[in-house]
Design a protein around this nucleic acid. Structure first.
Lengths: 213, 213
DNA sequence: CCCATCATTGATCGGTGATAAGTTATCACT
DNA sequence: AGTGATAACTTATCACCGATCAATGATGGG
């Protein structure tokens, strides 16, 4: 019988279909500890336990690996933003809490954050051509969740700026600056971290909202 | 005569001592057009008109070239910050102008800015060991000029926060976020750039200063 | 005129991302 | 069991990278 045979996945030497996950895990681990540029495909392959060319069966390019990690990082961020939006009401307190969700995400997932927002993508556009703008689309997705929250604040008449996109981009930039600097320049003589974060978020809140000086 | 012979610079084939400047000029030009990672020492050498190993007579490492460019760029920033401070009076207008000096500098020297604040320095510290923190120190020099301006605003009783370091770090993070994202994510669907900058600076000003809602 | 000096170079090293061709193992089907 | 197709993987290799080194060649001093 076997009227219609479903192609079953083979698992010859390694764990088969999980191989791709193993590669991503190894890559993220290595990127986190050694930095993106200093990690080679051979190192990734060695950690997975396969030969270096074997990677290219799952990813066309090294950049594709980082792009995939980037997309996943954004997915996590989207998840958290949606959670934050679930019990959101347009108040200054909720607003600050949403900003903190972003900061906490970045600081709790510094590796993912690095890959998502701090990776240098060549100016000539070769990266974009090869990898497509899927990572960018994922980023915009996360951004839009944030925009929805800002939109609710605007609708409640609490924001200084009526343009949601503009205000969201500004706030995002403000948050990203703090997170990226804390991650990339951990050895800078920062003021105590929690104090700095609270101070920064307060500043953004004062700058964004009306009548909460 | 010639009681004391000054070592006269030799100019065997090229222009001698100016060679170093030529290298820096070529490197900056290439970095600007093609991005930091995709430019090779051979390309730099070819543009200067010398062989690739000849570079290493002037710079110990490729990173040293970028570091030198970075330091020079920040010298310019310090210069601009001091110029901004020269005719600075503790008003909201002057304050915004100072913020804009930083943003303009970053956008006009994206490669130097990258090297100073956005380049991934392997967490193992190999980069730092080779090149030192001279680029970052140069950046911090500019940071301190900025702190002086914030200090004047505080002394005039215009800031929300009395702690100058804390406030300066917060503002710096806010500015850095905008600059670094505009540089690294140039293809993001940003609101019109000038508008976004103005909006961002206004937000930071509202968040930092009292009674200028 | 010769020599010491030093900027400069071709050759080369280990390492990189990526490709091509060949090998092995598993499958469907007889 | 045997066969062909194919997926998974490997070895060998390519062009290029940053960096090093012995050799080259021009220069100025004695």
């Amino acid at each position: 019988m076997t009227a219609l045979k479903i192609r079953s996945p083979r698992k010859p030497k390694g764990q088969g279909a999980e191989r791709r996950e193993e590669i991503l895990d190894a890559a993220l681990k290595l990127f986190s500890s050694k930095g993106l540029h200093t990690v080679s495909t051979r190192q990734i392959a060695e950690m997975v336990g396969i030969s270096q060319p074997a990677l290219y069966a799952y990813f066309a390019t090294k950049d594709d690996i980082t792009a995939e990690l980037c997309i996943r990082a954004f997915a996590i961020l989207v998840e958290r933003m949606e959670a934050a939006r679930a019990d959101f009401r347009p108040t200054a307190e909720c607003f600050e809490k949403a900003l903190r969700v972003y900061v906490d995400f970045g600081l709790q997932n510094p590796d993912a954050y690095r890959v998502a927002f701090m990776v240098e993508k060549g100016l000539d556009g070769t990266y974009k051509e090869r990898v497509g703008d899927r990572p960018m689309m994922a980023g915009i997705g996360a951004f839009q969740r944030f925009a929805e929250i800002v939109g609710e604040m605007r609708d409640a008449g609490l924001t200084h700026d009526d343009d949601v996109q503009r205000m969201t981009q500004t706030l995002w930039a403000g948050l990203h600056g703090l997170v990226s600097l804390l991650i990339a320049r951990a050895d800078f003589p920062w003021v105590e971290r929690e104090v700095l974060i609270a101070c920064h978020i307060s500043l953004l809140r004062r700058g964004a909202l009306k009548g909460v000086a």
